[in-house]
Nucleic acid binder design. Structure first.
Ligand code: SF4
Ligand code: SF4
Lengths: 148, 148
DNA sequence: TTAAAGATGTATTTAATATACATATATATG
DNA sequence: CATATATATGTATATTAAATACATCTTTAA
């Protein structure tokens, strides 16, 4: 059981933005350099975060991205729901493609649903504001990493 | 977020065995025919279930497999823990391969751990005996499916 | 001795994900 | 208006994990 890197990258972008001084813009290049990950991949991550209303983008010179609302109003559950391609715990969760012959009598799917729901419910207890405890520590951590 | 088919197949095997009359043996071929899934894949599924103590295998003519203990003593959580290849919700969960620069200051991993734990804790509330509500319905369901 | 069962190791296929590449569009500024 | 710099968008490719197939070995009842 894993989440996609796409989801983690989405959260990394939001975490980064949450630590920037309010109202300042970051660029995708800046963030991909910071984390050392594919800029191309981040472009799509950022685009979907914008479509889902988590951040605002500004094109053109001096453009960039920033959070669309305060970190404390961005739920981790919301973000993960919007980035994960699916939450199909077994074949029968996709009615179109399901070939499992015991579906009509199987209660396992209900158990798996309940487990998935408690996973997401836990995430719903937290917001972006809970991801970094000490203000400023994100960039201090970066400095330490690049100086060694 | 998905579980592997390997995990669902493992549970399907256990569900099937739980509905067989006690002490009778089933064969892998019988089960793969029942579900219409790859026999080769099931061979490995069954082998790992045996290694993990969920079922007993008997080689040779008239051999086969059966549950190693009553269905009510086989926890769904136990099974899933033993069949899923990993529960690494983000890159940093694998310390060897982790390249995430903010790991020292990031609290997201704790949130993701907690969510994963509540997923598994939910599964731990159920056993194999909870997967089929009506005795006999599994095979009746099969008959209906093949007769249409 | 044979048939029928699982055990084991390797190879291949498939599908999902991640990444790269190319080009379009928007906008601030000189 | 031209240019530089930012995001937007679509397509192609690469990588990886998972699923499946194949070949052979071992065990055991009859
Ligand atoms: S019906 Fe039950 S056994 Fe079949 S795919 Fe769904 S959860 Fe698995
Ligand atoms: S440290 Fe935080 S951002 Fe980095 S991989 Fe782990 S959970 Fe994701």
């Amino acid at each position: 059981m894993q989440l996609t890197q796409y989801t983690d990258y989405s959260l990394r972008v939001l975490i980064y933005l949450s630590q920037k001084p309010a109202q300042t813009l970051a660029t995708i290049t800046e963030i991909s350099d910071f984390y050392g990950i594919s800029r191309n991949h981040l472009v799509k991550v950022v685009h979907s975060l914008a479509i889902n209303g988590f951040l605002e983008t500004t094109r053109g010179k001096n453009g960039g991205i920033r959070l669309a609302k305060p970190a404390a109003q961005i739920g981790i559950g919301e973000v993960v729901r919007s980035t994960e391609p699916n939450f199909e715990m077994a074949e029968c969760f996709n009615h179109q493609n399901n070939t499992c012959i015991i579906t009509p009598v199987c209660s396992l799917k209900g158990i798996l649903s309940e487990a998935r729901n408690s996973f997401i419910a836990t995430l719903d207890q937290y917001t972006l504001a809970d991801t970094i405890q000490k203000p400023g520590s994100l960039f201090r951590s970066y400095m330490q990493a690049i100086n060694k």
